[in-house]
């Protein structure tokens, strides 16, 4: 079995968000780039499945310019066997999914994070499944193999389920899929330098959405403080002033 893990290159989650060019573009100056947190968990789970046996190869792939290779190298250092970078800016989710659909056909299981922490699209995994005509399961918090089937824990609105689904499959994963993301060890970092990172030319595809501009939330008014000894006053304020109780 071969697993493909989709990787999104995103700003570190502690980044102060700023925009440039009259608020038309994200200000990437001084930003540290990381593997999207959910993709990192997906890769960790893929590694665990490989260690349990039955997985011959884990490939990581992204759509991005050369600057994103550091993030792919990190994924290789965590333990992926090889990497594919499709050489184009990630214009929108449909563009990205269209690119990935050209390289994803050989894999039995494709793992995608539930969203990327930058533009929160919740889109690439489902779009890729549709383009490949594969089934997809979203909000996945656990995945195991059982012969030719995948046994999956899925969160639904108001509970959870255990499913059996046959591949090939796109699993769109969230918290719970793996406990802690794996951190690359020194040996992994050394080995990653020798692992193949294949650069693939982009195919013709059209994006369907574009950002007009960005806005930061309006600044909050100062926090109204209540004395610790008189905490009951808070309930009165919430009831009479904020009218939320």
């Amino acid at each position: 079995m071969k697993i493909l893990v989709l990787i999104s290159n995103v700003p570190d989650t502690t980044t102060k968000i700023r925009f440039t060019g009259d608020n038309t573009a994200f200000d990437a100056a001084g930003v540290q780039w990381i593997i999207n947190p959910w993709d990192e968990l997906a890769l960790t789970r893929a590694m665990e499945l490989k260690e349990a046996g039955g997985v011959e190869k884990i490939t990581v792939a992204n759509v991005g310019e050369k600057i994103t290779e550091a993030t792919l190298r990190k994924a290789l250092a965590v333990g992926a066997d090889d990497a594919i970078r499709i050489d184009a800016p990630a214009k929108d989710a449909f563009f990205v999914a269209s690119q990935l659909s050209k390289i994803a056909g050989d894999y039995d299981l494709i793992l995608a994070g539930i969203e990327a922490s930058d533009y929160n699209g919740n889109a690439v995994g489902g779009m890729l499944a549709e383009l490949l005509d594969y089934n997809s399961v979203s909000a996945v918090s656990g995945i195991n193999m059982d012969g030719d089937k995948f046994v999956i824990n899925r969160e639904i609105d108001g509970g959870s389920q255990v499913l059996s689904v046959t591949g090939p499959l796109v699993a769109i994963v969230q918290k719970g899929i793996a406990k802690e993301p794996r951190i690359p060890a020194m040996r992994g970092i050394m080995m990653a330098r020798k692992k193949p990172l294949n650069v693939v030319e982009a195919v013709d595809a059209h994006e369907k959405t574009s950002f007009v501009n960005f806005e930061l939330p309006p600044p909050k008014a100062a926090c109204k403080m209540v004395d610790e000894e008189n905490a009951k006053e808070l309930i009165t304020l919430l009831h009479e002033e904020a009218k939320v109780l």
Partner: peptide
């Protein structure tokens, strides 16, 4: 809805309908 089921279906439906998807 931008909930578990909506997030699961919207991307697939957008591809089929040749639609632009905006989530959330």
């Amino acid at each position: 809805a931008h909930n578990n089921l909506g997030k699961a279906l919207a991307p697939r439906v957008s591809v089929k309908l040749n639609a632009g998807l905006v989530s959330g």
